[in-house]
Simulated assay, not measured.
Amino acid sequence: MNKILTLILCLAFLSGFAARPKHQYIKIKTDMGECIIMLYNETPKHRDNIISLIRKHVYEGTLFHRVIRDFMIQGGDPDSKKAKQGDLLGDGSLGYTIPAEFRDSLFHKKGVLAAARDNNPEKASSGSQFYIVQGKKFTDEGLDSLEENRLHFKIPVWQREIYKSIGGAPHLDRNYTVFGEVISGLDMVDKIASVARDSNDRPVVDVKMSVSVLKRRAAKKLEKQIN
């Protein structure tokens, strides 16, 4: 009887493990739409940090406080929750940083989620602030110029093709940690990036966000749809 019970428990454990999705996913909702972001397993410190903050409701009611068309939309400043219109945002902090997790295979193509940071020499990331890349399309000549004048390294051929076809912000590569990508709802990013903004690139009309973690069942269903 004990052997049978042990076997049942083992099968239940294996079944539960097999049911786990390959990645974790978050949903960002705004008045201008919503998007779903897949978090990269290759950047576990950033992945686990944002999951923890979401579950603590840190992002609830914060703003996309800095938007630049053809570049990116930035949010996650904890001070933005109670900010008045016209207040300068972007310096808010949770009092800690995250060590950089640069990976050559993770780059600033359109739709990626990356961590904002100040000008610290270690290039450590802000504990809460992030941005989503809108970017723009590049030509070979434009990428060649970036390589020579700003990057001082060669962009892999396969990445160049993506920068030419869907766009991005290659000048940020190896300078800011990329830790996820939008897999649904990229039009939300385009809409937010196009809103009217003041001289500090803050939207004239506040763009508030609500962020949640997809539950295991929803994440598993999503992976079946995209695979």
Rank of each mutant, 00 (worst) to 15 (best):
V207H: 04
F102V: 03
A196H: 06
D187R: 00
I51D: 13
F179D: 02
I162Y: 12
A115T: 02
G76E: 01
Y40F: 13
G167L: 06
F17G: 07
A83P: 00
T97H: 10
G76L: 03
T139V: 05
L151R: 01
S165Q: 11
K45R: 14
I226L: 14
A12L: 15
V211I: 10
S125K: 02
V112Q: 08
D173E: 12
K215H: 09
D87T: 01
Q24T: 06
G142V: 00
L151D: 08
G180L: 07
S93M: 04
V195H: 00
I54H: 04
K84F: 07
I28H: 05
E34A: 13
S210T: 06
R69K: 15
G185F: 04
I226Q: 09
I28W: 02
G90F: 04
K154L: 11
Y176Q: 08
V213I: 06
L88F: 10
V207R: 00
E42N: 14
I98L: 11
M38C: 13
F102S: 03
N2G: 12
D87E: 14
R47M: 12
N200D: 11
R55M: 12
S126N: 01
R103E: 15
G111L: 07
N119D: 13
L143M: 04
S199K: 10
N120M: 10
S212L: 06
H65Q: 05
R47Y: 07
S210E: 15
T97R: 15
K221G: 12
L172E: 10
K221L: 15
G167N: 04
I37A: 11
I166N: 06
Q225A: 14
E60Q: 09
K109P: 06
Y40D: 08
